[in-house]
């Protein structure tokens, strides 16, 4: 198995039209600080590069960093448990109450499939996801979206507006096209997609190649 890094995964998916957060990589604190200024606080700091697919479990993600001092503290904390990491990712902090997940997977019987599901902290307990075989039409992708038990979350929710369905369809099409474009791609996870205002933004992504 041969995964792309988070940064590479998002760059690849962006070529197919995925909307993802602003971000750049850094080799050290100085580069990270410069990148953070460029993107604008608040930012998220993550470990990057080989072997960091499970960065949350490794203590390699620091959310909601508001200024350079906090960045410095976060950087030191991350290094305590990840001393061998040589690459960092500085991402725009995306704010939103609603989270979804999407992905691509090759089924052993039916071949390429796409998934869209409820994300966030209750996702595992609630397990609300629907699938389609690929390729399929944009209308079919939107039907998949509306099959979710939690599809009401796509409407106006706690003072956040209706989700931009065209943008969501673009995101799902990007995942489908990316997966279908390369037979070596075994799976894609885009998790989470945070709804920022009305826009679905991919905050993390992983492309797995065989």
């Amino acid at each position: 198995m041969n995964s792309l890094t988070e940064f590479e995964s998002k760059r690849l998916l962006s070529k197919f039209g995925l909307i993802s957060c602003n971000e750049s990589t850094a080799k050290n604190y100085e580069e990270a600080a410069a990148a953070a200024l460029e993107i604008g606080y608040p930012i998220v700091l993550k470990i990057s590069g080989e072997g960091t697919e499970h960065k949350s479990e490794l203590g390699g993600v620091k959310l909601g960093i508001n200024n350079q001092d906090e960045l410095s503290v976060a950087f030191d904390e991350i290094l305590v448990s990840n001393s061998e990491v040589s690459e960092f990712l500085i991402c725009e902090h995306i704010e939103g109450k609603r989270e979804f997940i999407a992905g691509y997977h090759i089924d052993k019987d039916f071949g390429p499939t796409i998934m869209f599901g409820l994300g966030g902290i209750f996702a595992e307990a609630i397990s609300d996801a629907s699938f389609r075989l690929l390729p399929c039409s944009r209308e079919e992708l939107l039907r998949m979206v509306y099959e979710l038990k939690s599809s009401a979350l796509l409407n106006e929710f706690r003072s956040e507006p209706d989700v931009d369905l065209e943008a969501l369809a673009d995101t799902l099409e990007a995942i489908a096209k990316c997966g279908l474009a390369d037979p070596l791609i075994e799976a894609i996870d885009v998790n989470p997609i945070v709804i920022s205002g009305d826009l679905p933004v991919a905050v993390d992504a992983l492309v797995i190649k065989s």
Binding site: M1, I101, A102, G103, Y104, H105, D107, D109, F110, T113, M115, G117, S127, A129, S130, F131, R132, L133, C136, E140, E186, A187, I188, D189, N191, L206, I208
Partner: peptide, 21 residues
Amino acid sequence: ASSHTGSMASDQKIFETAVLQ
């Protein structure tokens, strides 16, 4: 499964998806 998506794609779910789609 190597991916989160794959772990959610039970045989039953994909079979039912295929028939209905």
